[in-house]
Structure formats: structure tokens, C-alpha cells
Computed example of a mutant assay.
Amino acid sequence: MTTKTRKLTIVALMIALSILGGNIKILGSIALDSFPAFLSTIILGPAMGMVVAFFGHMFSALFAGFPSTLPVHLIIATLMMVCMFVYGYIRNKWSDRPVLSKVASIIAAYLINVPLDLLILYPILKQLVFVLFVPLTIATLVNLFLTEIVYAVLPEKIKNFSIVQNSGKGN
């Protein structure tokens, strides 16, 4: 199996996990759909994490009946993509300092997922953003916690997949 096929298979599995997580609702479309996106970002890089985040949120919103309208959920999915990019960038940039990279990327992900998202959505959703703050905080922290737990127990072969992929080995 080529590296490209493995990567595509992992992305498909992560989207499927994201869809499953999207069915574990906290409130409306707020669910455990971003955990596979965070994991994909660590393993496959920010670009693939962005893809998983977009589709994960859109399926979660679809299954909830787009409670905040399709345009709002497209904005949220786009913000999730931005979150995965920043999360992955920080993890990669400070990979030589693993504790700092984890802490900084988690803080950045929280700040993007909760206060920044709600600030951007305030003109559209008005007072609803105040209702969303607590469930969104809980979901974001649970998704990030699950990511760290699952990544910690993954076999080294999977953790090092992106290193193998970038070096051209495994084809």
C-alpha cells in the first residue's frame, strides 16, 4: 500500500469518526466532532486536519438540522479549518519543545473555538452566543482532552506517519 493510499484511508477514517462524534451532542450542533480533526492535524498535518474539521462540522450540523442556518454553519466550519491550521502550525513550529507545543496549541485552539468564534458570530446570532459559551467550552475541552489521550496511546508507527510520508519512505 502506498503512502498516498494510507493517507487517504486515514483521512476517510477520521471523517467517519468525526461523523460518529458529531452524533454525540452537547447542544444543537455542538458535539464531539472535532476530536478526529485535531488528531488528523497532529498525524497528517494541518491541511488534512482542516478537511476533516470542515466535513466533521458540516455533518454534525446536518444531523442536527442546521440549527443556526446553513450559512452560519459554513462560517463555523471555516473557523474550524482556521483553528486546525493554527493548532497544527503551533504543534509543528515548537515540536522540539513538546510540552510547550501541546500547551500553546491547546490554548490557541480554545481561544479560536470559543471566544473568537462567538465574537465573529455575535453580529449574526446576537444574544445566543452567551448561551453557547458554556457548551462550546465543554465540547472544545473534551475534544482536546480526547485528542491528547488517544494520541498518547497511538503506536509510534502511526505517530510517525507524517515523518515517513514527508521523507518519501513507505511507498
Rank of each mutant, 00 (worst) to 15 (best):
T5V: 15
T5M: 15
K7D: 00
I10Q: 00
A12H: 04
I15N: 00
S18K: 03
I19P: 02
I19K: 05
L20M: 14
I24F: 11
K25Q: 13
K25P: 01
I30R: 08
D33T: 04
D33I: 06
S34H: 09
F35D: 08
F35N: 06
F38M: 10
F38N: 06
I43P: 00
L44G: 04
M48A: 12
M48Q: 12
G49S: 04
V51Q: 02
V52D: 00
A53P: 06
A53E: 01
F55K: 01
F55C: 02
H57E: 01
H57A: 09
S60E: 06
L62G: 10
L62T: 10
A64G: 09
G65R: 05
S68D: 12
H73Q: 12
M81E: 03
V82F: 11
V82M: 11
C83S: 09
G88H: 03
N92V: 02
W94A: 07
D96C: 05
D96G: 07
V99K: 15
L100A: 13
V103Q: 07
Y110S: 07
Y110H: 08
I112C: 07
D117V: 12
I120W: 09
I120Q: 06
P123R: 07
K126R: 10
F133T: 13
A139Q: 01
L141H: 03
L144R: 01
L144K: 01
E148G: 02
V150S: 03
Y151G: 02
A152C: 06
P155W: 04
E156R: 04
E156S: 10
N160Q: 13
N160F: 07
F161C: 04
S162P: 00
S162K: 15
V164G: 00
Q165S: 12
N166T: 07
N166H: 15
